[in-house]
Amino acid sequence: MNQTTQIPALDDGYHYKVMRRAIDVLDQAEDQLSLDQVAAQMGMSSAHFQRLFSRWVGVSPKRYQQYLKLGQAKEMLRDRATTLEAAHEVGLSGTGRLHDLFLRWEAMSPGEFARQGEGLTIYWGWFDSPFGLALVMGTEKGICGLAFAAEMGEEAAMQDLTRRWPKAVFVEDPMMLRPWVLTAFGAQDGALDKAPLFLIGAPFQIKVWEALLQVPSGYVTTYSDIAASIGNPKAVRAVGTAVGRNPVSWLIPCHRALRKSGALGGYHWGLPVKRVMLAFEAARAEA
Rank of each mutant, 00 (worst) to 15 (best):
A168Y: 11
R104N: 15
D36P: 00
K234P: 01
V220T: 04
T222W: 05
V208D: 08
L213M: 13
S60M: 07
Q6W: 04
L213T: 13
Q32S: 12
D36M: 09
F131L: 09
S129R: 02
S261A: 05
K17S: 15
R284S: 11
K17N: 14
E155T: 07
I230H: 05
L213Q: 11
Q37L: 07
L52D: 15
G145H: 07
G262V: 07
A287H: 07
K17P: 10
W105L: 14
A184H: 02
L213F: 00
A242F: 11
L77R: 12
Q3K: 14
E140L: 14
Q66V: 02
Q205S: 15
A134Q: 09
L103T: 07
P253F: 03
K69M: 11
Y267R: 00
A114M: 10
G119D: 03
F204G: 09
A242I: 06
K234Y: 04
I7C: 13
S45T: 14
M42P: 09
M108I: 10
R20P: 09
M176H: 13
D27V: 01
V243I: 12
A39T: 10
Q214N: 10
L10C: 10
W56T: 08
T221D: 10
E281N: 04
L133F: 01
W165Q: 13
G244K: 00
A150K: 11
P203T: 03
A184V: 01
A283M: 04
D79P: 07
F148E: 02
V18C: 09
T183A: 15
T83I: 01
A157E: 06
L26Q: 06
F113I: 08
A187L: 00
F102S: 11
A149T: 02
Q205A: 14
A211E: 04
Y267N: 00
L177K: 05
V59R: 04
S109P: 06
S60Q: 06
D173H: 12
I200W: 09
R256W: 02
G142C: 11
P247T: 06
V38Y: 07
A157M: 07
G138C: 07
E172K: 10
P247M: 03
P61L: 04
G94Y: 08
P8S: 08
G265C: 08
L70S: 12
E30M: 07
Y267F: 13
Y64I: 01
A87Q: 05
P203V: 00
V220A: 04
R51W: 08
L68H: 04
W105Q: 15
L35E: 12
L120E: 15
A134N: 10
L212N: 03
Q159P: 01
Q6F: 08
W126H: 08
Y219C: 07
R178M: 13
Q65T: 05
M175R: 12
P110H: 02
G190F: 03
A195L: 02
P247F: 05
D128N: 15
